[in-house]
Amino acid sequence: MLPRPEVTPLTEPYWSGLAAGELRFQHCRDCGNAWLPARDECPRCLSRSHDWQVASGGGRIISWVVYRQAVHEAFVERIPYNVAIVELDEGPRLITNVDAREEELAIELPVRLRIDEDDGLHLPRFTLAGGRWSR
């Protein structure tokens, strides 16, 4: 079974958003900063006043790795698999997986959100926005 996130009052809007089919990020009402993962305070102006906004779904790849050996039993059958850093068009960055062949991955590549239901979890994953890319 995939490891479960620890859902807290702070992160509940994030996970319930995914279950409702949308990727939400925090937005500061005072300075306009946008970020993930969830925090109590804006890391730029330290305000506690924030709301949740819905990501448009566009983003780009900052970097990625490919696991050749599993560190957790849930991933033994999944190797090799990639883990990527994606920056959303709105600014926040998240750890995710990109559904693409290894040789298609590249930094700055545009990607598109796809919320997967996987092992009972709703996870924000990405596909290549431009279809198949060649470098």
């Binding site: 995939l2 970097s63 990625w64 790795v65 560190v71 957790h72 883990v83 995710t96 996870l123």
Partner: peptide
Amino acid sequence: DDAPFGWFGTPAGYAMIARR
């Protein structure tokens, strides 16, 4: 909370930097 994506361990963090 990134464990469901398979994000584990110190080597992978450095591998992210190396790839970039």
